[in-house]
C-alpha cells in the first residue's frame, strides 16, 4: 500500500519549479514534507492531484500510474487534498460540504468531530479558521480516502486548536497514508513518523522524524540560504 512519486518535474507558467521530487508514503504512516518557503511543497501536492501539470516523472498508486488521469478521477481513486485554506466550499453549508465527499452517513462522519454537530446548517464561509480546518479533516475522514495530502494544517491556529488537530490526524492515520506539509517543526514532530526534505524543487533527504535534526541537509533545506531571498515568518 503505497503512493509513490518518482522523478517529478513540473513548471508553473513556464518557470520550472519542481526538478526532481521522489517520495513514497505508506498506509498508517504520516510523512512530513518539509522545506523553506518557496521550496515547492504546495506545488508537489498540487501536482499529485493534477492541478499543476506534470512535465516528467510518475505518480503511482499501488503500482498503477495516475499521472494521466483527470483530477476528479484521482479523487475517486482515493486521493484527498486539503489546501492551505482548508478548501471547503464557502457557499455550501457544513452538512453539504460533508455530503459532497462522504462515503458514509453524515451522522457517522461527524462522530469523531462532534464540534461540527451544532454547525451543520452553517455556511462554511462563516466558520472560524480552526472550524474550517476541522471541517476539512472531517471531509477527508468521511470520504474514506486512502491518501491524504494536507498543506500546512497548523497555519494560523492557536495551541489548543493545534492539539485538537493533532488528535484528528491521529484518528485519520489509522485508515490512510498522509503527507503533511508543515512549517511548524514542533507540530510536525508531534504527528509525523517520517520526514522528507525538499530544497529548491528537489527532495534531498528523508528518514524517521526523530533523526530530522541530524540530517546533513537540515540546515540547507530549512533555513534561508545565502542567495535566496524571501521573508520568514
Amino acid at each position: 500500500m503505497s503512493l509513490r512519486l518518482s522523478g517529478i518535474r513540473a513548471r508553473i507558467g513556464g518557470v520550472p519549479v519542481l526538478h526532481a521530487v521522489d517520495l513514497e508514503i505508506r498506509n498508517g504512516k504520516v510523512t512530513a514534507l518539509l522545506g523553506r518557503n518557496g521550496a515547492g511543497k504546495t506545488t508537489t501536492l498540487r501536482t499529485v492531484l493534477g492541478l499543476t501539470e506534470l512535465d516528467a516523472g510518475e505518480i503511482t498508486c499501488e503500482g498503477r500510474d495516475l499521472s494521466r488521469l483527470p483530477t476528479w478521477r484521482r479523487a475517486r481513486e482515493g486521493l484527498f487534498y486539503v489546501p492551505e485554506d482548508g478548501g471547503v466550499f464557502q457557499d455550501l453549508s457544513v452538512q453539504e460540504n460533508l455530503k459532497l465527499s462522504a462515503r458514509m452517513p453524515i451522522a457517522q462522519a461527524i462522530e469523531p468531530f462532534e464540534e461540527l454537530g451544532p454547525l451543520l446548517g452553517r455556511r462554511a464561509a462563516l466558520l472560524s479558521g480552526g472550524e474550517r480546518k476541522i471541517l476539512a479533516l472531517a471531509r477527508a475522514y468521511a470520504s474514506r480516502s486512502e491518501w491524504l495530502l494536507i498543506d500546512e494544517p497548523s497555519l494560523g491556529l492557536a495551541p489548543t486548536v493545534l492539539r485538537r488537530l493533532a488528535g484528528a490526524i491521529q484518528l485519520l492515520r489509522g485508515r490512510a497514508a498522509m503527507l503533511i506539509v508543515e512549517q511548524n517543526l514542533g507540530f510536525a514532530q508531534s504527528v509525523a513518523d517520517d520526514y522528507v526534505l525538499l530544497l529548491d524543487g528537489r527532495t534531498v533527504d528523508r528518514g524517521p522524524i526523530d533523526t530530522l535534526r541530524q540530517s546533513s541537509q537540515f540546515d540547507a533545506a530549512m533555513h534561508f540560504g545565502q542567495s535566496e531571498g524571501g521573508s520568514s515568518q
Binding site: 492531484l49 492541478l51 483530477t71 476528479w72 479523487a75 466550499f89 464557502q90 455550501l92 459532497l100
Partner: peptide, 21 residues
C-alpha cells in the same frame, strides 16, 4: 443541485471532491 452549486462555488474544489464538472 448540490454538485452544481459546488461547481459554481469552485470548479477546482468540485473536481477535488470527485465531481466531474
Amino acid at each position: 443541485g448540490l454538485r452544481v452549486r459546488a461547481g459554481v462555488d469552485s470548479q477546482t474544489l468540485a473536481e477535488l471532491a470527485g465531481v466531474r464538472v
